[in-house]
Amino acid sequence: MYVMYKRLQQLRRGIALPAPGVPGSLALRHVDCGSCNGCEHELANAAAPHYDFGRYGLSMVASPRHADVLLITGTVTRRMAGPLLAAYEAMPEPRLVAALGNCALGVDVIANPDELAGPAEDLLPVDIRIPGCPPSPSEIVEALLDAMPLLRRPIRKDEA
């Protein structure tokens, strides 16, 4: 156990991630709408020590009700369109939608069109586009951090 902690500590020092820049946070809810599971792996990898997206205020949340961003992977299948829209409905405002990966963007899709409801854009307003097959963990983190200001709004007097 001690050795494991020691190694993790060394690893973290070795990676030397840059300090967070602007303070802020985004709670992320992921919905797999028909991916090949590559985009999921890279999204999960972005939370691992080499990228540690939590350090920059990004976190995965279990419910769309707690989420700022809906992350869509895969081109939306007919069968996932309903659950996707239900998840979006459950999110509080303000909310953002991210299309994660080429499939979600409708690029280079391989599928029988009869089985598809269309790329994310056909069903929801997409605010964040993260191309790649799959996008790398750092590309995912950077695209999300770039989107942070989209949710920033001036604090009203009565809230302060």
């Binding site: 797999d32 709408c33 028909g34 991916s35 090949c36 599971n37 590559g38 985009c39 792996h41 895969g74 081109t75 299948t77 069968r79 996932m80 659950p83 391989i110 599928a111 029988n112 009869d114 089985e115 598809l116 799959p134």
Partner: peptide, 29 residues
């Protein structure tokens, strides 16, 4: 089967050399 994309259906009729791309797309890991 929520993610059913009918890849086997898509493969039917393709040039033999293109089968691999369809099989690959079924799953990244």
């Amino acid at each position: 089967f929520y993610k059913h994309r009918d890849l086997e259906g898509v493969a039917a009729g393709l040039d033999l050399a293109r089968g691999v791309a369809v099989a690959q797309r079924s799953c990244a890991p």
